[in-house]
Design a protein around this nucleic acid. Sequence first.
DNA 1: TTGCAAACAGACCGGTTGGTCTGTTAGTGT
DNA 2: ACACTAACAGACCAACCGGTCTGTTTGCAA
Lengths: 199, 199
Amino acid sequence: MSPPRDPESTRRHLLEVSAEEMRFKGYKAASLADILNKAKVSKGALYHHFANKQELGYAVFDEIFVREFLADWDVPMSNTDPIDAVCQWITEMSEQATREKLQQGCPVCNIATEMVSLDEGFRDRTQIMFDTLRSRIAVMLSTAKLNGQVKQVVVPESVSSFIVATVQGAMMQGKYGRDLETFKAILRCLADYLTTLKT
Amino acid sequence: MSPPRDPESTRRHLLEVSAEEMRFKGYKAASLADILNKAKVSKGALYHHFANKQELGYAVFDEIFVREFLADWDVPMSNTDPIDAVCQWITEMSEQATREKLQQGCPVCNIATEMVSLDEGFRDRTQIMFDTLRSRIAVMLSTAKLNGQVKQVVVPESVSSFIVATVQGAMMQGKYGRDLETFKAILRCLADYLTTLKT
DNA sequence: TTGCAAACAGACCGGTTGGTCTGTTAGTGT
DNA sequence: ACACTAACAGACCAACCGGTCTGTTTGCAA
């Protein structure tokens, strides 16, 4: 076991339990009492590590959800065709998906949908995260364009936004319908579209 | 003015004010006290018309949000090419979009994202609604396929899911980034893809 | 060993929540 | 004119919310 009094692991534990609660219930509906109960940590401890619920929420978002999200979206930049790389990544995502994960949806999107219009902090975080993601993909497409691997009519910024939107939309539909097949079908269409962009 | 004691209009008014609150705050965060205040209706009146908050939520969802949603998605079945019709509809949607509307996002999706995993009623309603929508579009594509207007490789069910997912994803991205241009760019990509399906 | 701050423990609090209950009022059928 | 019920009005309530505050314990530095 961890030593008695290990502030760093207490904080971490609190973050993870909070994340679990917020994953399922959302930000507002995740109650501190439940979190404290589940984590077997006192209120004093929580408020020692976090100024308030908002700060806890931000920490969960930054240190758990965004981290996970960007890791999931880490398209391996193979040395071959980038479009192929993206398509392969999509296929893998499609294969790894389970009904349970799909049901939960994307935590970042769930929290963002809930909070973006109510809280500046969440809004800024969401905006920055998606900007990061989109520009990452856009850069990939730009170099592919320079290498003559995709058609010259392709607008990298548009297509990268399109990819992100469609994948997130697919997850949403999957969540609502609890249907793995629908999710996979959408991703297959996306891969089809992307291959049409190849030279 | 309406006569004193018009139960039907009281109900309607309550529904509309609740919808306004839920649009902005979501279901759980929309408080009855605020709704009552805003609507200038007593708690007794509300609980005369609705059994509880859940029933009120369902009514708002069914009678306001779903109705609006399906009306928005009512792609005019022109007698010419269905793909063209969808593309034109997308263009119109793109043109009509404002920053304010985009910021609010799609109420159905907002509520669905919040409630689907917590409440059976909302889950069923969401599922039925999207099934309705997807099959509507799938039928359109099927007939187009029979008429030889789209390629034979097109799977109507997949493409219809894809369209829905991408448009919803575009709205999400637009909401998060508060950026009209991103929204429009995504829809343009979708239109591009759809035209590649034509024979 | 003692001092002292960091790390907790948990009682307590005011405000808000959805929901109930006891009225009162208005329309309507007889 | 009267009765009866639908349509309200609003005081009241327990449960819960996030947050505070006062204590205690622990580890570590001097």
